[in-house]
Every structure is written in structure tokens, then in C-alpha cells.
Amino acid sequence: MADRPVLTGTRRALGGFRPSGALAGVVPFFAYTTVFLLIPTIVVVVGAFVDGSGRPTLDNIAALGGSTSSFLPALQHSLVLSVVTAVTGAVIGAVLAYAVSTARPDGMLKRFVTALCGVLAQFGGVALAFAFMATFSLQGFLTVWLTNLGIDTGSSLWLYQWDKGLMLVYLYFQIPLMLIVFLPAVEGIKPQWREATETLGGTTWTYWRRVAGPILMPSFIGATLLLFTNAFSAYATAAALISQASPIVPLQIGGTFTSEVILGQENVGKAMAMAMVVVVALVMWLYAWLDKRASRWLVR
């Protein structure tokens, strides 16, 4: 080892590590995720285990499961809301993705649908809630129009309930998101797989049940999990639409920081947020595992 290179100066200081241009390019990304993901997560986790004076405590965690706590019902609502909108959005979005994949690759229809879905998947928050109110509320244009036609639309209160209106509003961005996420997987299906199935004696049903279905399943489940986390962590749309009570976890967390009625609950809010982080982390780990499995099978 006599001719081993001698490290000098900065390189020695870095332990032989030589920064490259490519590495420099990702510095802003790491800075961004540190400031807006890593540090907030640490603040949330630490805050969940300390009291208002900064002393360690498990009271915040215990408060989540107390008999008077509204957290568990809210968690149940959040899970139901997320599962229903994720599964419904995934099924409808998958069917749409398949339909779009059969269109001409460079055709107008495909370009239009994918571009539109790209916008709609990000169309949430106050604007979306207002759009639904302007359409379906008591004075919404659709309600007024139907009433003028003599059709009784009944009460519009359903629009402001988590298990009715909020689900419908969430589907508005869940379905386009599914199309965008799932379309590459559907397009990765080779036509030769269907033809091989047929020449070997299989039918269309055989193809979907034994070939295309199993190949697409990891991508489908992965995309459904992504939709789940999308709904589970959504806040702005629900906050704009539901002003009475806090039936889902994100609204409860928001309430602990903004409520003028119940004070000093910030650390309980952080405990709630930590519970959400755990759920989302588990789901995203499963998503990454499924995506890795699917990427071996599908050329995207």
C-alpha cells in the first residue's frame, strides 16, 4: 500500500469524500425536506412527550385514549373517510386509466384527460369547498335550478357532513390522482401478454385473472395507499367545508392550536399529529415496498 494516495487539505477534512456537482444539485432538496419535514416531525414527536413547561410526560398520549376524548371517534371517522374515498377513487380511477390507455398515445383525448387530471388532482382546499357550496348548497346554482324546475332537493346539510359531502368532495381530487398515479402501470402492460395467453388457450377472463390482474395488483394497492394518505392528511378542504365540530383528526389537531375555548392543548395536538405520522409512515413504507415489487414487472 506504499503508493496509496495521500489526502490533503479539504479532501482530508472530508475523510476522502469529494463533493460532486450532482450532489450539490440535491442540496436544496435536502434543505427543504429538513426544514419542512424533518424538523416539524421532530417538534411533533418531542412535543407529544412533554407538558406545557417542557417536562417529560405521557399525559398527552394518555389524553388521546381517555373516556372523554374525542380523538378516537375522530380517528375512526378519518380512517373510514380515507378508506372509502381511497378505494372508491382507486376503482373508478383505475377504470378511467385503462380507458385512457386504450386511446391513441399521441391523441387529443389522452393529452386532454391527463392534463385535466393533473390539475384536478391538485384542486383542493378552500376553492374546491367553495365550488361545491356554489353548486350543491341551499343557494347553490344546481339546487336553485332544480327547485325552479319543481324538483325538491331536500336539505343541503349533507354537504357539510364528513360521511357524505366531505367524501364526495374528496373523490373530486382522489379519482384524478389515481388516474395519474396508475396510468403508467396500465401502460406498462405488454399487448404480447394478452396474445400469449390467448395462443396458450386462455380467454379474456383468464388474461385478467391470471396475468394482467396479478401484475397490476401491487401498483393498484400501492396507488390506493397513496390515495389513503392523501385523504387521511387533507386539512384545508375539510376546514373550509365543515365549520361545526371537528369530526376528523386533522380538524381536531387544528382545533388544539386555534381554539379560543380550550386552551393549553397544543401538546395534545402534537400527540395526535404523531399518531397520524405513524399511520402515514406505515402506509408509505408499504407503498414503497409494493412499488418496488411492481417496478420489477412493469417497464414504465
Binding site: K190, Q192, W193, E195, E198, G201, V211, R296, W297, L298
Partner: peptide, 19 residues
Amino acid sequence: PTNKRDMGMVFQAYSLFPH
């Protein structure tokens, strides 16, 4: 129909079922 013709086929593109 194809599935009743009893033909074996090898394609230009790789067509093994990947799963």
C-alpha cells in the same frame, strides 16, 4: 378464435409473464 386454434407462438418482444 385464437384460444381454440392450438398454436404455440414466440413473439419478437419478450413476452414471459413477469410474475
